[in-house]
Computed example of a mutant assay.
Amino acid sequence: MISDPHFYLAAIPAVILMGLAKGGFAGIGMLGVPMLALVVSPVQGAAITLPILMVQDAISIAAYWKKWDTRNILILMPGAIIGIIIGYLLAAKVSDGPFYLALGFISVVFGLRSLFAANLTPKKAGIPAGLFWGVAAGFTSMIANAGAPPFQLYVLPQRLARDIFVGTSIAFFAIVNWIKLPGFWALGQFTEQNMLTTAVLIPLAVVSTWAGVWLVRRTSNDRFYKIIYGLMVLVGLKLMHSGIELIWL
C-alpha cells in the first residue's frame, strides 16, 4: 500500500470527484485525474483508479437500472472498442498533445454555446458520428480515463431526459472499463501495492458515488444540463492546458 501522505492528499479529493461523476455529474471526475498525476505516474494512477471506477459503476448501474438508451450504447461501443485497442497499442508512441488541445477546444466551444443558447432542438443519434466519437471516447479513456468529453459531444445534443442521459453514460463506461481491464493487466500495473491502495480508497468511493446519485435526483432537468455544460467547459479548459503542456513543455 502507498504510505506517502502526499498521495492521499491528492487521491481523496480525486476519488470524491470520481464518485460525484459516477453518481451522475458526468465529466467532473476527469478533474481529479491531474491530482493523481502530481503524486504518481499516469499509468499507475489509472491502474489504481480503474477498480475504484468499476465498483462505482456497479453502484451507479443499480441506482439507474435500465435507465439507459440502448441505441446510443450500440452505436458508440464498436468505435470505443477500436479506440481502446489503439490506445493500448500506441499510448507509449503517439503524441497526445494535439489531440487533447483539439478535443478541449471543441468541448469548450460546444459547452459555452449550449450553456448560453436557448431552446436547443434535440438531435437524433447518428451512426457515423457515433462511431467517430466512440473511437475518441475509447482512446482517451484508455490512455487517461478521459472519455467523458467525446461521449458528451455525441450524446448531449440529443437532450435525453436527465436519468436516461446519466444511465446511458454509466452503462457505456461500465462496459468500457471492463474492456480496458485486460490491457492494464498486461501492462503489469495490478501490483499488490496498487491494489491495497485501491482497497483503502474504495469505502470513500462508495460514499461519494451515493452522494452524487442523491444530488442528481434533487436537481431539475434544466438545471442538470446547465451544470453538465458548465463542467464540460471546465474539463475542456483542462484538456487544452494539458495539450499545450504536452506540445511545448
Rank of each mutant, 00 (worst) to 15 (best):
P13M: 14
A14L: 11
G19S: 14
A21L: 01
G23K: 10
M30F: 10
A37N: 14
S41L: 11
Q44V: 12
Q44T: 13
G45D: 14
A46M: 08
A47E: 04
V55K: 03
D57Y: 00
S60D: 07
R71H: 02
I73A: 07
I86F: 07
L90R: 04
K93P: 03
S95Q: 14
V108D: 06
F116A: 13
K123R: 14
I127Q: 04
P128R: 11
P128E: 01
G138E: 02
F139W: 09
F139T: 05
M142E: 08
N145I: 02
A148R: 00
P157T: 12
D163P: 04
I170E: 00
A171G: 04
F173M: 09
W178K: 06
K180Q: 07
W185H: 11
G188W: 08
E192C: 07
Q193D: 15
N194F: 08
A199K: 14
A205M: 11
G212Q: 11
V213Y: 00
R218T: 01
T219N: 06
S220V: 08
F224T: 03
K226Y: 11
Y229R: 12
L231R: 07
G236N: 06
L237A: 11
M240E: 15
M240A: 15
H241L: 14
H241I: 12
G243F: 13
E245A: 12
I247L: 15
L249G: 15
